[in-house]
Amino acid sequence: MGKKYLEIRWHGRGGMGAKTGALLLGEAMMQQGKYIQAFPEYGPERRGAPVTAYNRIADEPIRIHYGIKSPDVIMILDPTLLNTEKVWLGIREDTIFIINSGLEPNQIKEKFNIKNKLFAVNATAISESIIGRNLPNTPMLGAFVKATGAIPFDEFLKSVEARLKMKYREDIVKKNMEAIKKAYEEVKES
């Protein structure tokens, strides 16, 4: 696809919030007037197991209902997943990588022989220092917005904050918002 729809594929591990990340992004894009899909690929649900989630974003209603095979953007919540086959399925020359890693973008490119446009941010360190545990999904959203410019950052923040407030305590929401902003500032491109 890639023409009618912006297709994003998330790779994380159970407990890292890949699904929630996809849902938050979906809702924020809907508020921009877009049609959206956000859905996980469910396997056996357990902490630590590889998890895939998807977003489609479009200007028209989205009719197809199956997993994304060749993503425009790939979000890697755990860099060790780069060693798994599934992450590499359907990657095109123009697929953009956004990776949670403590390494510099160039180092990642070298290590995994990636020629694509690549963004890296240490979402784990950000979430551990601000939220108190490894929840890289929200900071990765900050990196996504910076990398793609898909949505004005302030409007994105407003949407995510409203959604999180429905489910979480105020202090948790505040910490997540802070983590998103920090990742937005810190993400590096190569």
């Binding site: 996809a22 849902l23 979906g26 049609y35 959206i36 956000a38 859905f39 209902h65």
Partner: peptide, 12 residues
């Protein structure tokens, strides 16, 4: 509604 395919998919 289709289980997972629609039940767990966010749409507008």
């Amino acid at each position: 509604l289709d289980g997972f395919i629609i039940s767990h998919e966010m749409e507008v």
